[in-house]
Design a protein around this nucleic acid. Structure first.
Lengths: 269, 269
DNA sequence: ACGAGCGTATCGCATAGCGATATCAATACT
DNA sequence: AGTATTGATATCGCTATGCGATACGCTCGT
């Protein structure tokens, strides 16, 4: 399996700081911008790097970082060179997960599913053009990134995303396809609009979606949508395995029904 | 096993908003205060609840929440009543985990450890008086809370905490004991300073710490410190099992050496 | 049908945050 | 070793900005 290069796909850039909105507090927007800079950072960043990368004056960054540091949202790097995000974010993430009723009720279902399939089981939630992994249960052998909560993948080309799109109107699907920047992640990533639409249709027929090496080379994944109020898809369950161990159709026959059942148990129409 | 009641133990309250610090940006502090309100919330909160709970004017809260909402750090609750933390925090948590070299290099080691022990394996990082779980690998049967990244436990009474304290000076240990509010979490939680000190001494001798039902009834846990620059303990590895399955000393004999080895592989003196 | 409570909007004033600049410390370079 | 470069910290005046107080419309619950 090949390492995923980027930290996250389609991470929404900080919602454009809206100057016209009189309610929007600029300082908080700045803080968010500063934190967002780390989304595509591979190492700790200095004040100047932060300043240039987000087009804010150095003084402002100085005070923002100072403040965030006091609050625990930014830390100095291990070797005292530059800054990294702080541990305090984990507290807020915990609150997010705790207070999300979907995740709470999904948890036992996922654990049960995991017990039965003995492959990787994930729960992702939709956020615009991407699915964000909110809960991950590892299989025996895993990579570092496959254990990380917060990882996100595009809707338009992944098993979960297909499953989600299967429950959206055609024009919503088209909208997603159009607005996504469809750069192939693996050689087999589907980027053609028509091919995507065909996959979506197939997912509508089956009640689940199958994806081959869309994000990770050598990976086969099944996605099933989780539905909320009025049948709107909120996210998806994924079961993922290795093509080295499984024939795609065997994988599918064996695990799709279980995944569908699990997703049904979590959905609340 | 008994459900953990509080969301997190010893979560540091938002570092007192320092009025005297001229560099501190008040608005960001307010935003942090607002987010911190969710730490001890069991349900979505309304604007008024947030306002009263953090002693800020209603108008301020209104704008802060409005802003945070635009940024994705706050969402409306599922049923459109009240607010909850937003999914955007997952992005920052991911950056935190990604950019933390300790976690990155720990990951394969933990997976290997997990493979060998087949019990729950956790990695926690120290943040003041608490250990925050940063990486969690589940065993077969788990509770919801045992899967959550961001959960935190007190240093003074847990296996990981004992292991950490074993690498601190006596006065630092005393300081931790003193500053912790030592409310028993289970009936067997050790809260007596002398008893704690004895446990720490034992951990010093053994190179690991054993904890029985300190946080969860029916749980046995081994903690081993992870050391950084100059031997300072940065966090700990935990191996946790059920007393229904294991005799404490058997558990210990069997897994302690493996945990110690793993911790050694992660440490960087 | 009515009231309580929640979210939204407006506006003037005072303050809080930004830009520009300077200083000190530590690392990189020759 | 001496210097140049880059990073972090500090200061200060001006103006934009965020807060308080208040008022309005809306949806629930009884």
């Amino acid at each position: 399996m090949q390492m995923v290069r980027r930290a996250a796909y389609g991470v929404r850039p900080v919602t454009s700081i809206d100057d016209s909105d009189p309610l929007f507090i600029q300082s908080i927007g700045r803080a968010a911008q500063v934190m967002a800079v780390f989304h595509d950072a591979a190492k700790p960043l200095t004040l100047n790097e932060i300043a240039t990368r987000c087009g804010i004056g150095k003084s402002a960054v100085q005070r923002v970082v100072h403040t965030l540091r006091h609050l625990g949202y930014v830390e100095r790097a291990e070797d005292d060179r530059g800054y990294v995000p702080g541990i305090r974010f984990l507290d807020n993430t915990l609150d997010y997960l705790r207070l999300n009723p979907l995740i709470a009720r999904a948890s036992p279902v996922l654990l049960e599913l995991r017990r039965n399939v003995r492959e990787r089981v994930d729960l992702s939630l939709r956020d615009g053009l991407r699915l964000v992994y909110a809960s991950r249960l590892q299989s025996k052998r895993e990579t570092f990134f496959a254990t990380l909560v917060g990882q996100s993948v595009p809707v338009y080309c992944t098993s979960g995303g297909m499953a989600v799109m299967a429950h959206l109107d055609d024009d919503e699907v088209d909208d997603i396809i159009e607005r996504s920047d469809r750069v192939p992640i693996t050689p087999r990533t589907i980027t053609e609009p028509d091919a995507i639409r065909r996959q979506v249709c197939q997912a509508r027929d089956n009640g689940y979606a199958l994806a081959l090496e869309q994000v990770l080379v050598g990976e086969v994944a099944i996605g099933v949508a989780i539905l909320g109020h009025g049948g709107r898809p909120l996210g998806a369950i994924h079961v993922a395995g290795s093509l080295a161990e499984w024939e795609a159709d065997v994988f599918c026959k064996r695990f799709a029904p279980l995944a569908v059942e699990a997703a049904g148990a979590i959905s609340r129409l």
